[in-house]
């Protein structure tokens, strides 16, 4: 089922073009970033910063845009009925789609990370040291995690409304609202129950002041995981009840 879903994604021109766009953006921005970099900075530190900036402005919105269509295409093309006739397990179908979404995000983030790495390799100059790769690995993982969260939310809205446009629009609005107002809400304790303060785990090593107010990486991981499971469960329920009219 995952392979089926993956093939549906990669055969779309939009996906291929968006991935080329992501990689191209990563190459160009990494190139210009390395020009103005401090002398003592390492390649992996630059990569960490690049992934953080690109992730916030490009990769997460990209994940929000491409993910809901994994589900909503079935409504748009009317293929869901056909799919239900070929599989007795709605849960497996839904899980296959969710797994394809995870694979899609991993591919996107890896493309960006490798493009940035390549760019810093070429543009960084022979004197620049490599540094610790762990910072770049952690920030890539944190970016994937953040993408899973928002893509899951956008997909849930898409399944609920059966509309990719509303899923994408809703997901993007919530994401940018969080970017704009999230910081000012950190001091309000009850908002710590919301995922908006736990979505970007890289803040724990990039912003020590932020880390002091929060429950720690494990706590944020748990909060995010609970929200992801909730999005998955509600989406699955909406998806599976489709035939029981």
């Amino acid at each position: 089922m995952i392979w089926n879903e993956w093939l549906k994604i990669v055969n779309k021109k939009f996906f291929v073009l968006s991935l080329i766009g992501l990689t191209g953006a990563a190459l160009v921005l990494s190139g210009s970033y390395s020009q103005g970099a401090a002398i003592d900075i390492t390649r992996f530190q630059m990569m960490d910063g690049m992934i953080g900036a690109l992730g916030m402005l490009v990769v997460v919105p990209w994940a929000i845009v491409v993910s809901p269509s994994i589900w909503t295409d079935e409504y748009q093309y009317g293929t869901l009925k056909q799919l239900f006739l070929h599989s007795s397990s709605r849960s497996k179908l839904y899980a296959g789609k969710a797994a394809a979404m995870v694979l899609l995000i991993i591919t996107g983030v890896c493309c960006v990370a490798f493009a940035a790495l390549l760019s810093f390799l070429v543009m960084g100059g022979p004197d620049m040291s490599w540094g610790k790769p762990s910072v770049a690995v952690y920030s890539s993982a944190a970016l994937m995690w953040q993408c899973f969260l928002y893509a899951g939310l956008a997909s849930l809205i898409g399944v609920w409304t059966r509309s990719a446009a509303i899923g994408v629009g809703g997901g993007l609005v919530l994401y940018f609202m969080q970017l704009i107002f999230g910081g000012s809400l950190v001091s309000v304790s009850w908002t710590h129950l919301l995922f908006i303060h736990h979505d970007d785990l890289s803040l724990y090593w990039r912003d020590p002041q932020y880390a002091v107010q929060m429950p720690g990486v494990t706590g944020s991981l748990v909060v995010d995981a609970v929200y992801m499971l909730l999005f998955f469960a509600i989406g699955l329920w909406l998806f599976a009840k489709e035939r029981s009219d």
């Binding site: 089926n4 021109k13 009317g78 056909q82 007795s88």
Partner: peptide
């Protein structure tokens, strides 16, 4: 369901895939 094949209302497919790839989508499930 294993013994049942059906086309209800209009036949629906993924328009960006070939006929073969559309059939393969369902064939892989069985």
């Amino acid at each position: 369901l294993d013994d049942l094949g059906a086309v209800i209302e209009a036949p629906a497919f993924y328009p960006y895939l070939s006929g073969y790839e559309n059939l393969r989508q369902y064939q892989r499930l069985h």
